[in-house]
Design a protein around this nucleic acid. Sequence first.
DNA 1: CGCCCATTTGACAGCTTTCAAATCGCGTGG
DNA 2: CCACGCGATTTGAAAGCTGTCAAATGGGCG
Lengths: 252, 252
Amino acid sequence: MQAWDSSPLAPMIDKLAIRSSLSNVEIYAFLSLPYRLASVNPGAFLVRDGHPAVDCCALLSGFAHRSKITKDGSRQIFSLHLRGDFVDVQNSLLGVADHNVQTLTRSDVAFIPRQAVTDLIIQHPPIGQALLHDTLVDAAILREAIINLGRRNAYQRIAHRICEMATRLETAGVCKGPCYDWPMTQEELGDATGLTSVHVNRTLRTLRTDGFFEIADCLITILDWSGLQAAGDFTTGYLHLRPLSDRVDQVA
Amino acid sequence: MQAWDSSPLAPMIDKLAIRSSLSNVEIYAFLSLPYRLASVNPGAFLVRDGHPAVDCCALLSGFAHRSKITKDGSRQIFSLHLRGDFVDVQNSLLGVADHNVQTLTRSDVAFIPRQAVTDLIIQHPPIGQALLHDTLVDAAILREAIINLGRRNAYQRIAHRICEMATRLETAGVCKGPCYDWPMTQEELGDATGLTSVHVNRTLRTLRTDGFFEIADCLITILDWSGLQAAGDFTTGYLHLRPLSDRVDQVA
DNA sequence: CGCCCATTTGACAGCTTTCAAATCGCGTGG
DNA sequence: CCACGCGATTTGAAAGCTGTCAAATGGGCG
């Protein structure tokens, strides 16, 4: 239990601490950011493509995704987000949103004025570096999504997505053990993997009958972790996780 | 003609100036970075997946791409890079490269020690912000690549890629008018669009017979720009280009 | 009980890949 | 100057993966 655990913004510090070292001064400065809390329903838009983004939205609990709609009306989900993710540094720092951010589940979020974030970065360069660092990891996750779509078939894509989600949930401390939250419908999973919901359904069945996992009630139980990793060509390198031993003492 | 145009690192300043405002102090600090110049052949690896990245590589001329190989040996190209791009802030700031960076053509590059870059960012927060800004645009380009792969067919994907490349070349001032450098083989274009070289060939032929462009000798001539944009569902929003009028005076 | 949304299943069409082979362009060496 | 070799491009035919269309089933909620 840390001193800052009582702050609503604590999940953000936890997330940054996964990959960066912040001093207490910086943590305090971060937690002193002005914010507006909100609890939002599934499907709520946190940012809309094309709209000006004046606030930086932080996801404190629940799940969200980034997406964009093509001219023919189909949706592509770029990335999934969970507790501790800044879901639109992207949009807010660039001024005009170039994609949507939408919740998957009921979620708690904090809206932080863009100017407060840019000021914080300038006054505390290590925080800027930590944000840059996290942004770079976000980009690495996007690159892996590109491989997934460009060079893997449906079976591999879905296996890979599940591995990634499970690893990130474990890292963020949201879920533990072989059971993980599964906040997506098959249609949403299709939008995330470039497939139709029909084909997602068939492929999930194949993966299930191959004994990799079971899904029930927004909960997935992984039965064969190493097999699933192999099926999805999944390795953790691109997530740039630091060994846990590096993390425990660096915020002390 | 600006005072810094004689520096080998000038292309980097030009690139940052496309989207950020830097004072002369910051420009001078940037140009004072230590660097090692190199001229490299086509196909040279600037960074290799899995290797430690100690230097930050800047592309001064020529073309490069980021890529990764799947376990079954196929390659996926994530992004293309040209004059002025930092081709591995990603890798060098994260320490261990999670993908390859390879030249497409003969290129001039500058290797800058990672520490020098991080120090520069800390001493000059606006430079850090400019880099963060460019990193965010890189991420936006990755997201567009994800849409391309996930929700567009071969015809649309290739049209989109051509539009993007032409726009970026024009923005960077590398090419002008309807003729643009085309540094990729059909196989490389396939690796960038998640297609086989055979299908790229067939699709290029269709696009040519539809009158959108001609290709000859690493040079593409666009004959129907608005038609090509429509075919590829291309809009410039995600590139976050500032109006030229904002750019000319901000470095003065 | 009825409605609505998500899941499931089937049949068929279409896009893309695979495998193979021919052609072309170009630099090298005879 | 011409023959050769090699990589890139081009083309054909067939197979495979995924999408489309349609309909049935299941579960939750008013």
